[in-house]
Simulated scan of single mutants.
Amino acid sequence: MKKSIFLVFTLVGILYSCSSDDDAQPTPPVTAVNTVQLATDATFGSILTDANGMSLYFFSRDTKGVSECADGCKAAWPIFYTADLTLDEGLLASDFGVITRADGEKQNTYKGWPLYYFANDNAAGDTNGDKVGNNWYIAKPDYSLMYAEAQLIGKDAEGNPINFKSDYTEGDELTFYIVNGNTGRTLYTFQNDTKDTNNFTAADFSNDAVWPVFHIDIDKLPSILDASDFGTIDVFGRQQLTFKGWPLYYFGQDVERGDNFGINFPAPGVWPIANVDTPGAPE
């Protein structure tokens, strides 16, 4: 009997000892998942996703840093917003912002472009929304240029706004054009230039403030643009980017993001915007 009692206590002691050892095992650390991640896509390279790996997008019509996607559009392209923004390595907090939309909801932005999901992306890694309508593009961290779509607005002699169509006649119409990917600033060509030749800029750059030459090293482009259409020329010791042989410029009076006042200065169509329908520059 004494032996039986002793064995029972011994067994309980062993079980208690094992249980205590198990409880003392360290808990594996929980890896924090950032609310905006950098994913690698086989087609697009580095892209922005949410914490669950769902792809994010830019809308070409958001040229002024506010959302132009509402009502039925928002159902197809749900907005992305998180108050607790944490970022993967390689992303800068200074590139992100928050806007309050016309409907009162908040939305995150990246380099001034509001961020969206696509309703037809069903799983992490889907990129079905890219190039839909030629105005939705996968959100990448490193676009050199972006493809915008907006109303062209010039000014009359008194400085009042005038709407222009893509043929530079007065009227209402959305027009596609190329902008700087980082700043959203409109790019122009000059009708008197020839292939790979800047016929505007003075040798001393005394008129550069009016139409500054534009240059950026082309890296990543939205899928509608072809890298082979771009080149670089030398303009009195400075580099200038070309598109289909046309040298590219800013307009000095475009101050705010999304401005395109140069389209009728000094007359409509003298300084056209550039898009995929732009014919090649003449020899």
Score class of each variant (00 low, 15 high):
Phe164Leu: 08
Gly181Asp: 03
Gly133Tyr: 10
Ser166Glu: 07
Thr183His: 10
Lys140Gln: 11
Gly133Glu: 10
Ala139Leu: 15
Ser144Lys: 00
Pro141Tyr: 00
Gly154Met: 04
Gly159Val: 14
Asn163Asp: 12
Ala148Arg: 05
Gly154Tyr: 00
Ala148His: 06
Asn160Ser: 11
Gln191Pro: 08
Glu149His: 14
Asp142Leu: 12
Tyr177Asn: 12
Tyr177Trp: 14
Met146Val: 12
Gly159Phe: 13
Glu173Asn: 10
Tyr137Ser: 08
Glu173Asp: 09
Thr197Ile: 11
Gln151Val: 03
Asp156Arg: 01
Phe190Glu: 07
Gln191Trp: 12
Ala157Leu: 15
Asn134Trp: 09
Gly184Met: 04
Asp196Lys: 04
Tyr168Ile: 00
Lys155Val: 10
Asp196Ser: 07
Asn160Arg: 11
Asn182Ser: 12
Thr183Pro: 01
Met146Pro: 01
Ile153Phe: 08
Thr175Ile: 04
Glu173Cys: 14
Phe164Pro: 00
Phe176Ala: 13
Ala148Cys: 01
Trp136Gln: 14
Leu187Val: 02
Ile178Ala: 08
Ala148Phe: 02
Pro141Leu: 12
Ile138Gln: 06
Leu174Tyr: 15
Lys140Leu: 09
Ser166Asp: 10
Leu187Met: 07
Asn135Phe: 15
Asn135Val: 15
Ala150Val: 02
Gly171Pro: 08
Glu149Val: 10
Thr186Gln: 06
Ala139Trp: 07
Gly159Glu: 11
Leu187Asn: 03
Asp156Val: 00
Leu187Lys: 03
Asp142His: 05
Asn182Trp: 07
Met146Trp: 09
Tyr143His: 04
